[in-house]
Design a protein around this nucleic acid. Structure first.
Lengths: 341, 341
DNA sequence: GATGAGAATGTAATCGTTTACATTAGGTTT
DNA sequence: AAACCTAATGTAAACGATTACATTCTCATC
């Protein structure tokens, strides 16, 4: 590694002790003004920078926090990371990023890795396979605070950052209902995820409120990726059980459905209207433009990071809190009722 | 921070010196088998993990490398990061990620931040504003190896990972030519970027090879984002100077052009055929499906990381090398000549 | 002139680990 | 029995920074 200038180098150059140098650079009052000036000049001359590793050892703080995200492919998590990064840079913390690849096993490995690297806290969005509840609890119990975001644990007590999935799903469904659609289906996400449950509940409650029929067939589990939305839609087309509108778990499944619709020679929104969720860039690029719920991704990262820093820096640590961020429904062409009025 | 078990704790528990404990755990031959066993048991009992910070101070190595990417929005860089991450995890290095937000000024700040954090090397993809040549050179000169990827410096001598932009642009253009198009235009990227120049050169050379006319009007600078592709296409439509086909700098500009084509009531590929570059997820989702050059993003990250580790670990450092990764042209509907034979 | 106060600086321990060198005890060789 | 070897362990310095405590010196006070 590159050789850096140290306190000792400055001390030797000026024939004084490292203690004085340290004090001079910290601008302490019990150092002679002359000496202070000499030290500061010499430090500048040698381009001295305090060694962050030595400081960490001394302070017994790693000044590092860990992050576990399920994947990197979609732009959702990268945007969250950008938000986290901003807060970390401001507060002088380093960020250790790991990817669980939607696997509980890999997630466990990542958490162990972070623990071995002495992170002072962990930000995590869990896999869609499920949660490593015991491990989360262990980490918290032995003093490493966890903050969940987006995909949160339902069992562990910790600070969490979510968007109001239930409400947004409810409103998105109501939007379809107010548009005049009656036969409305839902493509739901992995049953194990809280967000899936919340969005499904929002859908069901909105339907119930408006006295619209909901049968076993109204909800299809379609996973998180495009191919699943595609095959779910194909299934409906094959069975000739085509709804007027579908509220989809997320944008990829909506886009998969859209592809199946087009391939079958049907039209969106004329034959089937679509609503996505968790706004992706693509929503504004496909034809027709996709109605979708926009999540404040960057802000989610910032918020989660701030909550974690609070847990780390305050003694005693503050009460855990769950922050619910506001999301916004962007209504576009894919959910316009072309038959009405 | 959480309290971790140390060598001293084990030494105290067994009434021996930390030196012996250290040696026992390193499984050195000059330790009594009995002692070794006792130490290993006690270490397990206390869940001892070596303190990585102390090791770094001791070894005078930060075991950290830095990364500077221009942005997080598109999935391109996140996928590269995933590749880098994989190599780093395997080799026990930490990764410090920074985002320059396409600003030279922010890039300078990030590089300084990485230097202060004593990274042992830096991976960088430069901004589209241009390059901080002097700073790159300074870092290299004082012992921090740099490896460029994707958007590389044209002036600094260092290892680089690129895709064969020139060849792919050449072939993509030839694909349009072989499809029977004659009036072919190019929407080029920011003039300052090497990749822009390379792709433009590939386009021009392919046209020249096949003796097709190239005028001042054949190449329009369209930037990197969708809106620029959109306005460039609108300009052509307004001037009623509509080419049969356009080879675009990247997918977003192609999609922008596509939007303008549709809004003008024209059809792709019937009226204007399109070819994009640097495959995005979107290419497979739009109508018509977009022909595009697919880049090996994950592999690019892996390769760049490996090159950097070589620079760091070998003494004397190996010669710098430029690795050119293969990219692949995915031919889809947007570039099919519907008039031909 | 002895005492004390206060300013400026130095000494040495600490953080957790490694390792060159020193020490000890026991056994073997002559 | 003196000399030496070997195995096993301990001591202490080092990495770079901070800081409690100790020291030195000067000057003011009685």
């Amino acid at each position: 590694m590159k050789r850096y200038s140290t306190l000792k180098d400055i001390a030797n150059a000026l024939n004084i002790s490292t203690a004085t140098v340290s004090r001079a650079l910290a601008d302490r009052c019990d150092v002679n003004q002359e000496t202070k000036k000499l030290v500061q000049e010499e430090a500048k001359r040698q381009n001295y920078k305090p060694n962050p590793i030595a400081l960490r050892l001394q302070n017994k703080r790693s000044k590092t926090i860990g992050l576990v995200v399920p994947e990197f492919k979609s732009s959702f998590f990268p945007m969250v990371i950008a938000g986290i990064q901003k807060v970390m840079d401001e507060s002088g913390f380093q960020l250790l990023i790991t990817e669980s690849q939607e696997s509980m096993e890999v997630e466990r490995r990542n958490l162990k890795l972070l623990e071995n690297n002495m992170v002072e806290g962990i930000l995590i969005s869990i896999t869609r396979e499920g949660e490593n509840t015991n491990l989360y609890q262990e980490l918290i119990d032995c003093g490493i605070p966890l903050v969940f975001f987006n995909r949160v644990s339902s069992k562990v007590i910790a600070s969490k950052v979510v968007i109001d999935d239930y409400k947004r799903a409810f409103f998105a469904t109501e939007h379809l209902i107010y548009s005049g659609f009656k036969k409305i289906y839902h493509f739901s996400g992995p049953e194990i995820l809280m967000v899936s449950k919340e969005r499904k509940k929002g859908f069901l409650d909105a339907m119930k409120k408006h006295h619209l029929e909901v049968t076993d067939k109204s909800v299809l589990t379609a996973g998180v990726f495009m191919d699943k939305g595609f095959s779910a839609m194909q299934l409906l087309i094959d069975k000739n059980d085509i709804p007027e509108a579908i509220f989809c778990f997320n944008d990829p499944t909506a886009l998969g459905a859209l592809k199946a619709i087009k391939e079958a020679g049907l039209k969106c929104p004329d034959d089937v209207a679509l609503v996505g969720f968790s706004e992706t860039e693509i929503a504004q690029l496909v034809d027709p433009l996709l109605t979708s719920v926009e999540q404040p991704t960057f802000e989610m990262g910032e918020t989660a990071a701030r909550l974690l820093l609070k847990q780390i820096n305050q003694t005693p640590p503050p009460e855990v809190e769950t922050v619910c961020l506001l999301a916004k429904l962007n209504i576009r062409k894919s959910s316009i009722n072309t038959h009405k009025g």
